[in-house]
Amino acid sequence: TFELKGKVGKVVKIAEDHYLVESEGDKWIAYSDEKLSLGDRVMVVDVDGLKLKVKRIP
């Protein structure tokens, strides 16, 4: 299986209740415990079905 946990991506869209993150050339629906901005670099900390939980990284 394709393992996304630990992968790095970038926030490419902000929606009302989720983010769109591009990682490894694909776009994924993501959510975070912190507020993210367009262009933020993020790391995948968990995968919930087809949704990614991400956190901001420097």
Rank of each mutant, 00 (worst) to 15 (best):
G25H: 04
I14D: 10
P58H: 07
Y19L: 09
K35M: 07
E16R: 11
K55F: 05
K53P: 00
D40Y: 05
D33Q: 08
K51R: 11
T1L: 14
G25I: 03
D46L: 03
S32F: 02
S23R: 02
G49T: 06
V11G: 00
K13G: 10
I57S: 08
G25S: 04
E34D: 11
G39W: 12
R41G: 13
M43K: 03
K10Q: 08
E3H: 02
Y31W: 12
K27I: 11
Y19G: 01
L20R: 06
V11Q: 00
V54M: 02
V45M: 12
K53W: 08
D48E: 08
T1K: 15
V45P: 01
I29L: 11
V8S: 04
I57A: 11
L36A: 02
D17I: 11
E16G: 10
K13M: 11
K5E: 15
I57M: 07
V54S: 01
Y31H: 10
Y19R: 00
S32W: 02
K10M: 08
W28I: 05
V12Y: 05
V44L: 02
V8T: 06
Y31P: 00
S23T: 14
R56I: 10
A15D: 09
G6M: 01
D26W: 13
G6V: 01
D40K: 02
V45F: 04
G49R: 05
G25M: 05
R41C: 14
E34Q: 05
L20C: 12
K27F: 08
V21S: 02
K13A: 09
K35E: 10
I57Q: 07
M43Y: 04
E16N: 08
L52E: 02
T1W: 15
Y31Q: 14
F2T: 15
L50K: 06
K35P: 07
S23M: 15
D40Q: 08
E3W: 02
G49W: 07
L20A: 08
V11H: 00
E16I: 12
R41Y: 13
E3T: 00
K5D: 15
V45S: 04
L36N: 01
D33G: 09
G25Y: 04
K35H: 12
V45L: 09
V8F: 04
K7D: 04
D26C: 13
G6I: 00
G39F: 11
E22F: 13
D33Y: 07
K55W: 05
G49E: 08
G6N: 01
G6K: 00
D26Y: 12
G6A: 01
R41H: 12
D40N: 08
S23G: 06
R41W: 09
L38I: 09
G39P: 01
K13N: 08
F2D: 15
V54D: 00
V8P: 12
V21F: 15
K27M: 11
L50N: 09
D48A: 05
K13Y: 10
G9E: 01
K35D: 09
V45N: 04
F2H: 15
S37M: 11
V47N: 03
S32D: 05
R56Y: 13
D46F: 03
L52N: 03
E22A: 05
G49F: 08
L52S: 02
V54Y: 01
D40I: 06
I29N: 10
K27C: 14
V42K: 00
Y31E: 14
D26S: 12
L4R: 02
K7H: 08
K13F: 07
F2V: 15
R56M: 11
T1F: 15
K35I: 09
S23K: 00
S23D: 04
